[in-house]
Write a protein that binds this DNA or RNA. Structure first.
Lengths: 79, 79
DNA sequence: GAGAATTTGTACGTATGTATG
DNA sequence: ACATACATACGTACAAATTCT
């Protein structure tokens, strides 16, 4: 049960929680490339916009970083 | 410090700026053959597509011209 | 002349960034 | 929240033309 569209919790928060769990559990190793936004959207049954909003949350937490036109990776932004 | 993939400035514009500097500074003399697209891509750490897009910009500015299977030269296209 | 290597030209697939409805 | 479209970017593959062996 990925997400619950009837919940009071915003979809992007639910998606962020799912991805956060996958990262902190080690399911997604550091520096590993995440599935694409489109792929995650289809898998979780939400729109790409929602995935992107969730990724913004994780980015603010330093859990992931994104390179334009490349992908989103696990870990803090290098540099 | 060639290019910054995290910058808001598109990579191809950064590459164009680098090559433009090499040309206008005289580092690359007029009619001189530029390094191949593949070589430039590897040297600058970008894709060949990005180099080609940058070369299109310089071509539009009349700074370089290209001959298929030969290479890209400094200067306006002869003829 | 034949063949291999090199270089540009083109095409496709996939990814993120941005804008619009 | 979602869908769509375009710009930017990377990788791969192959075609075409030139150059080297």
């Amino acid at each position: 049960m990925p997400v619950d569209p009837y919940s009071d919790v915003p979809l992007f928060e639910q998606v962020a929680a799912i991805l956060r769990e996958r990262i902190t559990s080690g399911e997604l190793a550091r520096l590993e490339l995440l599935p694409s936004e489109t792929h995650l959207a289809q898998e979780l049954g939400v729109g790409r916009d929602t995935v992107r909003t969730a990724l913004t949350v994780l980015r603010d937490e330093g859990l992931v970083f994104t390179i334009k036109a490349r992908g989103t990776f696990v870990g803090p932004r290098p540099g």
